[in-house]
Design a protein around this nucleic acid. Structure first.
Lengths: 212, 212
DNA sequence: GAAGCAAACGCCACACTGTGGCACTTTATG
DNA sequence: CATAAAGTGCCACAGTGTGGCGTTTGCTTC
């Protein structure tokens, strides 16, 4: 529970395992409060222009406690993003077997999207808007993606490391492009459709030419 | 000269246009000193563990002056990266005409690499090592890449925006993979070779499968 | 249930980054 | 030479993130 790492589970909300001890439940409750309040508060007042103290005041926690749970102001804002990739890595471990890797990556994401619960689908779009409005948050997110990509590569075993690295980069890039298309409306049911479309556009994208 | 934007020319070292006025030459001299000292100083003591004051003290500039020239500590460290993309955008404007876009992107980068001077090939590897050692710097770099990508997309005109966006993402991702392969030795002459190899691996990467 | 223990918390002080105000110096210009 | 403008330095401040340390709170064992 002292993980706090960029990888590794951040909040155990997806598997809904209730911690036995009261202490851990309390701790988890304040973390949840911080996450929820952060997304809404930053959404109202803007991430960059909202001091961390405003969040701490509202949730009534000291700064010391906050930084024991999150490594930075960006960290708490991006919880939804981290949760997605945590689940994705779990899913990938479960289903990686055979066939084209590109399909495996896509299927894993589709499965991941099915696993996320309603609350996540409420917070995730809010988080995406925060990212779109704050370059600092965007940089932090991209960095997180890079670490996830390295983790994916670490768990797979193929002939060419370069080609594996490239494929992972392409898949995550495609995912991010898909999110940009999803962003305006953010209808949960459309996300898998958009992702499939993006993936099926990859080949024509590579052979793209100038307009006539 | 008051640009300071993430895009747009940072230092006019590539085209070597001497500013007429003494004032501008002075200013440029301090900027050069800051850039040079930053790369070496951060290289010796580490980016994260070197306070900005150490740099200011060595160059003998006040903090106020520094922040008039650079927008952040990361900014001055990444000058070489920014210069590369500045030149790339220039080159792209000059040669974009017809044929497959993927080839255009690759050719533009090869031309760009030819245009960079010896001093840049000295500073760029140092900068890459700084990035590899500092997550904060890495995030900043990725964010800069994203802005460059948006700028490239803005300057081109093709049928499908999504496919264009994808292709640009893929190219830049390929470039970053190439840099990782180049990093250990950093022999200038090998960079074009490695880049060509990465680009020619794209298709096989997309059809990658698990090991037998 | 009481004593003891460990985890979590709050408070305080500090280092570092980045910004704004204002006075002072230097350079360009008439 | 005088004046305006650009550049600089100094000072103070807001915000983020860290470490020390005493105190509270929940857990454990008798």
């Amino acid at each position: 529970m002292r993980d706090l790492g960029v990888l590794g589970k951040v909040l155990t909300m997806t598997t809904s395992e209730q911690p036995a001890t009261l202490r851990e439940r309390k701790k988890l409750r304040t973390r949840q409060a911080l996450v929820d309040t952060a997304v809404t508060l930053f959404g109202e007042r803007g991430f960059d222009s909202t001091p961390l103290d405003a969040l701490l005041e509202q949730v009534e926690v000291s700064r010391r406690t906050f930084f024991r749970n999150f490594r930075s102001k960006e960290d708490v804002a991006l919880t939804a993003v981290k949760q997605l990739w945590d689940v994705y890595l779990e899913v990938l471990d479960g289903i990686k077997k055979s066939g084209p890797l590109a399909d495996v990556f896509l299927d894993a994401m589709l499965t991941t999207l099915e696993r996320m619960d309603e609350d996540w689908y409420r917070r995730f779009p809010l988080t995406l808007r925060l990212i779109a409005d704050s370059p600092a948050l965007d940089g932090y997110t991209l960095r997180h993606c890079a670490e996830v990509q390295a983790e994916i590569a670490r768990r797979l075993d193929v002939q060419s490391r370069l080609e594996l690295r490239l494929l992972i980069e392409f898949f995550v890039a495609t995912w991010r492009c898909t999110l940009d298309e999803w962003l305006p409306d953010c209808i949960p049911g459309e996300l898998p459709t958009l992702l499939r479309r993006s993936c099926s556009s990859v080949n024509s994208a590579l052979s793209l030419s100038f307009m006539a």
